[in-house]
């Protein structure tokens, strides 16, 4: 029987949650006995090759590409997990949510004290994904099955969730594994 597949991605995140996944240390050898990675920065597979059991999503949705990738994950994964505070509540990128988007862009490209931008233009190439008006947590865009908060969630938290799901057991978390920081 082929191993179940796990896909991972980082949307509007910092890859810290992926670092935390790698922080399971030598247990990654056990993990690789249990699963194959599909689309993921860990093996650098860019597109889904088939159906996945679990999708781990780091980061919230800050732009239209994030939304497309997230929808693609929902389409291909049986169980979709929001990993980290950005995915569950927007996280640091959501600090811009109280400031109008135009003001954010003007500060970044025109008015900021350290800006050097002789063109005086805000980048608007069609290759650059359009920013959303706000940063959205993943569950406000697609259905999310489990949330693992934390910045990042500890390696033990991710390990516990993954092994429970792969073993078809309930994802019960001890008190010390659910933290918001």
């Amino acid at each position: 029987m082929s191993k179940p597949k796990v896909a991972t991605t980082s949307l509007a995140g910092c890859f810290g949650c992926h670092m935390s996944l790698l922080d399971i240390d030598e247990r990654i050898l056990q993990l690789i006995e249990l699963i194959d990675f599909d689309k993921s920065p860990i093996d650098d597979i860019k597109e889904f090759t088939g159906r996945c059991l679990v999708g781990l999503v780091e980061g919230g949705c800050a732009n239209e590409e994030n939304v497309r990738v997230l929808q693609d994950f929902r389409k291909h994964c049986d169980i979709l997990i929001s990993v980290g505070d950005c995915a569950t509540m927007g996280g640091l990128p959501a600090m811009r949510n109280t400031i109008p988007l135009r003001e954010c862009l003007e500060e970044a490209y025109l008015n900021g004290p350290s800006v050097y931008n002789p063109s005086g233009k805000i980048p608007n190439d069609e290759e650059i994904p359009l920013l959303l008006n706000k940063v959205y947590p993943c569950h406000e865009v697609v259905k999310i099955d489990y949330h693992l908060p934390g910045c990042p969630p500890s390696a033990d938290t991710i390990w516990q969730a993954l092994t429970a799901l792969l073993g078809d057991k309930p994802v019960g978390m001890p008190y010390e594994l659910i933290k918001y920081d």
């Binding site: 927007g90 109280t98 406000e140 693992l148």
Partner: peptide
């Protein structure tokens, strides 16, 4: 939140200006 086992709020975030 920890004691009650809240992993993520079910309500939409308001992100108010304060």
């Amino acid at each position: 939140g920890y004691r009650l086992g809240i992993a993520a709020p079910r309500f939409p975030f308001m992100f108010p200006q304060r």
